[in-house]
Design a protein around this nucleic acid. Structure first.
Lengths: 233, 233
DNA sequence: TTTTACTACACGAACGATCGTGCTGTCAAC
DNA sequence: GTTGACAGCACGATCGTTCGTGTAGTAAAA
């Protein structure tokens, strides 16, 4: 009986309320990336969508449930915008590089209003225990492990030196992209993307087996100055 | 007239209300680092200090003024805990390394409840125009420039290769410490500090003039694995 | 085919709590 | 006796949440 109803629900075209729910989350995810998951307010969200507070609230049952659903939606978008494109490249160093490039591009084209959704909410919730914090931590860890995993696969393919510590490499690559996100959103500094790219290529060059250096170009990055910049202080 | 008043204020022993003001800011800065500058609430702050809302409010006149004052207090603490100790070392690569080490230590001993105050508020306010945002951006930029500046000084002293792009170097060093802050606060991962240190030494080794390598030790960091870690997925 | 029963979805009104911000009064120090 | 630091009280707005109601649409009963 319950099973039959469930099947119907799945086969039916987007159970009407499900469509509304998705529209709510689509709007919420952008507000949350700019104002934070706590700054995301039910009243404000309802206004923006011309819904009543209570009507909107009914879809989630609590603010925490809303926040969790928003994170899920953000994950969905991140997969669509970053993971899927990168995973079209062949495995190994090509895909690893694609993951980082797609990630940088996603920050640069401001897929979320307030910069990378996950970095923003990680910092917002890192000292607020609860389901929200746990979910963000899980997703962050999972992405970091995906990077490390691809580096390890590159080792198996003989593209990266097997003496390279892939955990250390993932840490540094991740750091560079997050720094670009930070710099771009705080200073509107687009140069940060090039700086991140330079660092990424440099890290990979260090770890690449001699025969594959051509894949990444030959010049050492750190020791080449770009255009002069003005002296501070 | 105004000048005289200012002098008096400085010479007098903590103009009575000034002491209260400092106590307020001391408490506020820790709440703000954990709950955010917006999550920092006047009522909550008053409760914690056994003051009335209005009494506390009178010291600042508006929430934005309170936020600005809190940032100033955080800057003061950062200078005391990080800048001053690091500036006791001799100029050049020694001081540069000291700045990064003190910074890591400051994150590691949780000087602020919620991790690095400035990273947290930078991300919170990066898409909220206003005085608060501007002040945070100024301080962040200034710290980044201080790092770059010391690197440039190390070049003058012949400790760093003059072909090294100091802007790029500062970007990467800054990235490593911020990543450690992120990782530690989100995952309680103390290993992140070693990873940051490893990356820092590696960057500096790359840029160090051959004669000074002994200052940093001789082993290449990226290609040395530490203890085995479990395989994810 | 019509009636009935039930569910899904959304609304408006209101709850108590808390937000930032004023105004007024009091008490102590200069 | 003037000034500065605070408390007390109250304000309008907004917070998350609950409740009762209304309206479609669908399923079963007549």
């Amino acid at each position: 009986m319950k099973a039959i109803a469930d099947i119907r629900k799945q086969k039916d075209k987007a159970a009407k309320g499900e469509k509304t729910r998705q529209e709510i989350l689509e709007a919420a995810v952008h507000i949350a990336s700019a104002e934070g998951l706590e700054g995301l307010t039910i009243g404000r969200l309802a206004d923006e969508l011309h819904l009543s507070k209570s009507g909107l609230f009914g879809h989630f049952g609590s603010k925490e449930e809303l926040q969790l659903a928003v994170i899920g939606k953000a994950r969905e978008i991140f997969v669509r915008e970053v993971v899927d494109p990168a995973f079209q490249g062949e495995r190994g160093i090509v895909r690893l590089l694609a993951m980082l490039e797609e990630w940088l591009a996603y920050v640069g084209r401001s897929v979320f209003r307030g910069g990378c959704f996950f970095m923003a909410s990680a910092i917002e919730f890192d000292s607020r225990p609860g389901q929200v914090r746990d979910l963000i931590a899980d997703l962050s860890r999972s992405w970091l492990e995906t990077i490390e995993n691809e580096a390890r696969h590159a080792q198996i393919l003989g593209q990266l030196d097997t003496r390279t510590d892939t955990g250390q490499l993932a840490f540094e690559l991740h750091a560079l992209v997050q720094e670009a996100n930070w710099s771009y959103n705080l200073f509107q500094n687009r140069q940060a993307f090039d700086q991140a790219r330079t660092g990424i290529l440099d890290r990979l060059r260090q770890a690449t087996t001699p025969g594959l250096l051509r894949l990444l170009g030959k010049k050492s990055a750190v020791k080449k100055k770009p255009a002069k910049r003005k002296e501070p202080k």
